[in-house]
């Protein structure tokens, strides 16, 4: 089990969270807590850079949905960037590829 490491940088359009490690049953609560602490304003865009995500289970997907709910509550947008192929397959299977805006990389954002 790898620890989850979250680093944040702020851009003109909003915060970018770089998520590295396993987003699973053990670490999802920490991620959700981190996201809840984010102050988002209307029109901002929260980017989750998932390029370093090594594993994501149903608890992790729930955490992504909670992040989406947090952004929506502030009238902000949310983008999943650099989604690993395993997670992309799962997101597609459960229909979330239709719900999240997905970007190939966080660098161009």
């Amino acid at each position: 089990m790898r620890p989850l490491d979250i680093t944040r940088r702020d851009t003109a359009t909003g915060p970018v969270l770089h998520v590295v490690g396993d987003l699973d049953y053990t670490h999802a609560p920490g991620f959700r807590h981190h996201v809840r602490q984010l102050t988002l304003t209307a029109g901002q865009c929260l980017v989750l850079d998932l390029s370093g995500l090594e594993f994501c289970d149903s608890s992790g997907i729930t955490a992504l949905l909670a992040a989406r709910q947090h952004a929506q509550a502030a009238d902000a947008a949310i983008i999943l960037a650099a989604v690993p192929s395993n997670l992309m397959r799962t997101l597609t299977l459960v229909g979330l590829d239709q719900v999240f805006t997905i970007a190939p990389s966080a660098d161009e954002l």
């Binding site: 149903s58 997907i61 459960v94």
Partner: peptide
């Protein structure tokens, strides 16, 4: 769940 801010799901 979700309406009260605690999103949960099943497939």
């Amino acid at each position: 769940y979700t309406a009260s801010g605690d999103p949960r799901y099943c497939t």
